[in-house]
């Protein structure tokens, strides 16, 4: 099996997720080559061939040109699998390539066995095993599902296909103002999910976090509902955290959330739904109503 890995660079840096693609290919014994649009002097720690298109010319985000460049690399390599990260870049690019080539698109791969791919569904309540019906397939890999491999020196071949008329044009990056908390340094995170019911109830988790000397985290729906600001958000579009103790309160465990916290040392989940997917990463699963359980826990910790 041969894989073409589609790396990513953002703001001049190679994204860590690129090396997870390499890890995937290595783990399953696939031959691989890489394609990336990046700075021409990028240091890529990869032992293989890299087709590099210059980001000064083609921009880090320019889907029309990138698609043509990727298809050029596919023509040269004739890979069985074209592999992207399941990221904002992958969402945009991968399935357009699949539509062009009319090959099977498979999203958010978490495992692979003998030509069958494992993907989550229903907010990761289930796993689904899918098989491509075409010779080639376009895959996106879930962040954090495969261990990165960062080693080697590549043989770089520069790709240039001239100018491409863009239908979508990159204007600029906007960095969200970093206010409030830096969760990446916290030893304890008490995280709030939609299961707490309403904004006022977050007081319980706040008090628990203070009692444990930790910070307050949140799942995406809590931030979208404006119960807490974005700096609290844990997950792929928020912060990736690895505290010693992570307490998930009323969080069901959407895949995007799990990807941001599954490297935590010890995970406690408090949820009244025993089947909630957060159970997949929980060391202790407390089946309870968070609004009843958390105040009792805090009180006992205070008096202990």
């Amino acid at each position: 099996m041969k894989a073409l890995l589609i790396g990513e660079s953002k703001q001049g840096k190679i994204e860590d997720s690129t090396y997870e693609l390499v890890g995937f290919a290595k783990q399953f014994g696939m031959e691989s080559a890489m394609f990336i649009v990046a700075k021409s002097d990028s240091q890529i720690a990869y032992d293989g061939k890299v087709y590099l298109a210059d980001s000064d010319k083609y921009k880090e985000y320019n889907p029309d040109a990138h698609k043509k460049l990727i298809e050029e690399a596919i023509n040269k390599e004739n890979p069985d699998y074209i592999i992207f990260s399941h990221s904002s870049y992958g969402w945009d690019m991968a399935f357009r390539v699949a539509a062009d080539l009319k090959v099977a698109p498979i999203s958010e791969v978490v495992d692979y066995k003998d030509g069958t791919f494992v993907v989550p569904c229903c907010n990761s309540k289930f796993r689904r095993e899918v098989k491509p019906k075409t010779d080639k397939a376009v895959l996106t890999l879930q962040g954090g599902a495969f261990n990165p491999v960062i080693e080697g020196t590549p043989q770089v071949e520069t790709l240039d296909i001239g100018d491409v008329e863009p239908s979508v044009e990159f204007i600029d990056y906007e960095v969200q103002e970093k206010t409030g908390v830096d969760l990446t340094k916290a030893e304890v995170i008490v995280s709030v999910g939609r299961g707490v019911g309403k904004k006022e109830n977050i007081e319980f988790e706040k008090e628990l976090a203070e009692t444990l000397g930790g910070e307050l985290g949140a799942s995406r729906p809590v931030v979208d509902a404006e119960w807490l600001d974005q700096s609290h958000q844990v997950g792929t579009t928020g912060q990736t955290v690895a505290p010693k103790l992570y307490i998930a309160c009323g969080i069901s465990g959407a895949i995007q959330h799990l990807a941001g916290m599954k490297k935590s040392g010890f995970v406690v989940a408090i949820n009244k739904d025993k089947d909630a997917p957060i159970g997949e990463v929980a060391d202790v699963f407390v089946v309870a109503d968070v609004n009843e359980f958390v105040p009792i826990l805090t009180k006992k910790l205070k008096s202990a």
Partner: peptide, 16 residues
């Protein structure tokens, strides 16, 4: 439009 990227970053994009 603004596209939401990873880690609190957004990209402003013009779409035909």
């Amino acid at each position: 439009v603004a596209r939401e990227l990873e880690g609190g970053l957004r990209a402003k994009v013009k779409v035909k």
